[in-house]
Write a protein that binds this DNA or RNA. Structure first.
Lengths: 142, 142
DNA sequence: GATAAATAGTTGTATAATACAATAACATAG
DNA sequence: CTATGTTATTGTATTATACAACTATTTATC
């Protein structure tokens, strides 16, 4: 029973990833992509931070975050504040435009998920959210 | 409450995808990648099929599946049976070697997930598996 | 304080998974 | 039999990632 459920989880996760990857490369719903969205979310929720800190939090390579940040800066969604104590470093700060886009994108995502889950019970949604969060937690801690 | 939970689901899904993408491009655990794994799984579970049928089932572009199939054939994990009724088409059949790799890969994945979820209750695992499956269902039906 | 080692960030290059467009070979409908 | 549709392949582009080489700067060591 246990073994079987793990197999299900394992398979359904793989399917989920493939499906999302496909949809992502498909539709340009908004001006934001997933990586940009998560970066903006982080800056918005937890305040400004440098590339290094962000890449640690995200468990991504510094170079990856560096490019993501450059793209966001180029679009005017973030700006850089040089670190007064360290000439190499700076903080990324979300702009008003960035905040606006973030909210719009988030709203569009929530709308889509609301639609997908419209037949789910409150309890199921609640449970799914919590378990996903818990899974990501274990996942991140490795 | 509802709105909040949808926001959580939405965010945690994005995080999950990013995290998995990162890990995928990171570790070569096995000879299989996720796409190859899912293709083999499909052939193993639902019998042989052609590229067209597979790409419909997977909601992927034909060209994508065509390349995945070519890669698997090249490794000796599948072989082609020409369709006797249609000179353009053929069936993909999993080989013994393919089956062997599939089982090994699946086992490795289950092991990893077992480890990740070792502190979860039976009920949580059960619930997570079912909800993931249900989510993919809604997701696929669009 | 001078030099060595560590750190923050950028840029070049590579890989994986996808899509779309053009094409070839074949099948079916009129 | 010709026009249209279908299966699969191949060329090209995009996106998100990693690793490696590099620059500029900071910190540690002697």
């Amino acid at each position: 029973m246990d073994e079987y459920m793990l197999e299900t989880i394992e398979l359904e996760l793989a399917i989920l990833i493939r499906r999302t990857t496909s949809i992502t490369s498909n539709k340009k719903i908004s001006k934001l992509d997933r990586s940009a969205y998560l970066l903006l979310h982080q800056l918005s929720a937890n305040g400004s931070a440098g590339i290094k800190v962000l890449s640690d939090e995200f468990r991504l390579d510094i170079s990856t975050v560096s490019r993501q940040a450059a793209a966001l800066e180029q679009k005017g969604y973030v700006y850089r504040i040089p670190d007064p104590l360290d000439g190499r470093a700076y903080s990324l700060q979300i702009t008003d435009l960035g905040t606006k886009e973030l909210i719009e994108y988030k709203q569009a995502r929530i709308k889509r998920i609301t639609e997908l889950l419209k037949d789910w019970s409150e309890e199921e949604k609640d449970s799914f959210g919590k378990l996903l969060k818990k899974f990501n937690q274990s996942f991140i801690d490795r």
